[in-house]
Design a protein around this nucleic acid. Structure first.
Length: 474
DNA sequence: TGAAATGTTGGGGCG
DNA sequence: ACGCCCCAACATTTC
């Protein structure tokens, strides 16, 4: 009776799981395994918020597998070889990852497994199309989103979710094999030592059931408002599916299948899913872009260093209400509305003139949906150094953005409660309000709420001047 | 998936 | 009636 190991990574679902489906199609029994090997994650080991999510996602997956998910501590290759020997497994199946460090590790692993006489079989669970399946007429990867999305829409959306055969009586009973030496989930040390995770637990349920419920909820309400509503951080008109997609608790094909047929908003939302695809396409083909600007001119960009201002940005104490609201939402819940991500990123890299990499690092540690491809694209896009990036001279004005997209201050008042009583007119620029207005609202600037760490107009001009210095370099 | 500066147009007030 | 000015409102250009 042949046995296959199914090695789970960031494909933590039983539906639409090609590796699991293939293992069940070709083998009588499967042994589901998750291996914790943080040393193998290269320069971007999971941040604290991601680790928190992963813990709960693994607990949920184990439950869905009737407690037959085998947990082990790395190194991966040795572990899988040892498990294969102990169980007599003939094959290992997994779904691909696309970060440079993961690709390097998986390539070596595949070689080692095959050298040991095992089958090794990798699949696509995470993307609508593999990065190497999409190229322009010259056979090169795309660097511009729109043509990329055109091609992907024409071919990549065709595949539906993959059907997975029933698992009934096909999971290897872990207890039967003493040599498997399972590790308890708590031993991975994914949960924080000091309990800062209450806000996250209140905001999120990292389970498959919650992913399905969230998708349904979004389809029922958010989607029809999506085109314009996604820009309003005070409303719940975005999908909030990003962490589920990152950990593979939900697959992009499942999302496409669910959204298809919804006329209003469907196109716009799928386009955002397209940006996720594009990010993975870029990171695969330009694997240095998580570290280095894609636009070479930025190699000599005069970034500043300012620990106090970086700290103020991180902790939501810049004195710019919309920026602070976003950074506090991130800190409290592990997530930030996308419109606000662009604004705080623009503020860091342009108004503060601090390196986008610092922002990427902070997001990496604090976002529950931290994803190397999406994060790298997002930051380089905002900084103006990436593929298909916002031109450097596009500087978001957080006051205007606030007046436009949070006109009644719903969002700012939620996350910056010390300004709650400031009238709409001054909420996004309290430093311009008169003493009378402020005292009426019970606010003393510099005491209850910080004065702005930079002047928006002057810092904008400084950023443009910095850009002027490098724009003709090369 | 900007913002600000600059240019153009057209209506209305007014001598 | 006419020209002039002002200034929204909108369009275009520039950063």
């Amino acid at each position: 009776m042949s046995l296959a190991i199914v090695w789970f990574r960031r494909d933590l679902r039983l539906r639409d799981n090609p590796a699991l489906a293939a293992a069940l199609a070709n083998h009588a029994q499967v042994l589901p395994v998750y291996i914790h090997a943080p040393d193998e994650e290269g320069p971007w080991p999971a941040g604290a918020a991601s680790a928190w999510w992963l813990h709960h996602a693994l607990a949920d997956l184990a439950k869905l597998l009737s407690a037959r998910l085998l947990l082990r501590h790395g190194p991966t290759t040795d572990t899988l070889l040892q498990l294969a020997t102990a169980t007599g497994a003939a094959a290992v199946y997994w779904n691909r990852l696309y970060e440079p460090a993961a690709i390097a590790r998986d390539t070596q692993l595949k070689r080692a497994l095959r050298a040991a006489g095992l089958q090794a079989s990798s699949h696509n669970a995470a993307l609508l199309a593999e990065p190497w399946e999409v190229s322009n007429k010259q056979g090169e990867p795309y660097r511009v989103f729109t043509p990329f999305w055109k091609v992907l829409g024409a071919r990549g959306l065709a595949h539906g979710p993959c059907a997975v055969p029933s698992l009934q009586r096909r999971l290897l009973s872990v207890q039967r094999v003493a040599a498997l030496a399972p590790v308890a989930l708590d031993e991975f040390g994914l949960l924080p030592a000091i309990r800062w995770d209450e806000g996250m637990a209140a905001a999120w349920q990292p389970t498959r059931a919650a992913a399905e419920a969230r998708l349904d909820e979004f389809l029922a309400d958010g989607l029809r408002h999506y085109r314009d509503g996604r820009d309003l951080p005070g409303r719940d008109w975005v999908s909030r599916l990003s962490p589920y997609l990152h950990f593979g608790q939900l697959g992009p094909r499942e999302v496409v299948a669910a959204v298809r047929g919804e006329r209003v908003g469907g196109e716009d939302f799928l386009r955002e899913l397209g940006w996720r695809e594009f990010a993975h396409h870029l990171l695969y083909h330009f694997p240095h872009t998580s570290e280095e600007p894609m636009d070479g001119r930025f190699a000599v960009f005069p970034w500043r260093e300012d620990k106090a201002q970086l700290r103020a940005w991180q902790r939501g104490r810049t004195g710019i209400p919309l920026v602070d609201a976003g950074m506090r939402q991130l800190w409290a819940t592990g997530w930030m509305h996308n419109r606000v991500r662009m604004i705080v990123a623009s503020f860091l890299s342009k108004n503060l003139l601090l390196p986008w990499h610092e922002g990427a690092r902070w997001f990496w540690d604090t976002l529950v949906d931290a994803d190397l491809a999406n994060n790298s694209l997002g930051w380089q896009w905002t900084a103006g150094s990436g593929a298909d990036a916002a031109p450097y001279f596009r500087v978001f004005n957080p006051v205007l953005q606030g007046e436009r997209f949070d006109a009644h201050g719903t969002y700012v008042r939620q996350w910056v409660p010390e300004l709650a009583a400031v009238p709409d007119k001054w909420l996004h620029k309290p430093w311009q309000a008169s003493k009378g207005v402020l005292s009426e609202a019970g606010v003393v600037l510099g005491t209850d709420y910080p004065c702005p760490v930079v002047d928006l107009q002057a810092s904008r001009e400084r950023a443009l001047a910095a850009w002027g210095k490098i724009k003709n370099s090369r």
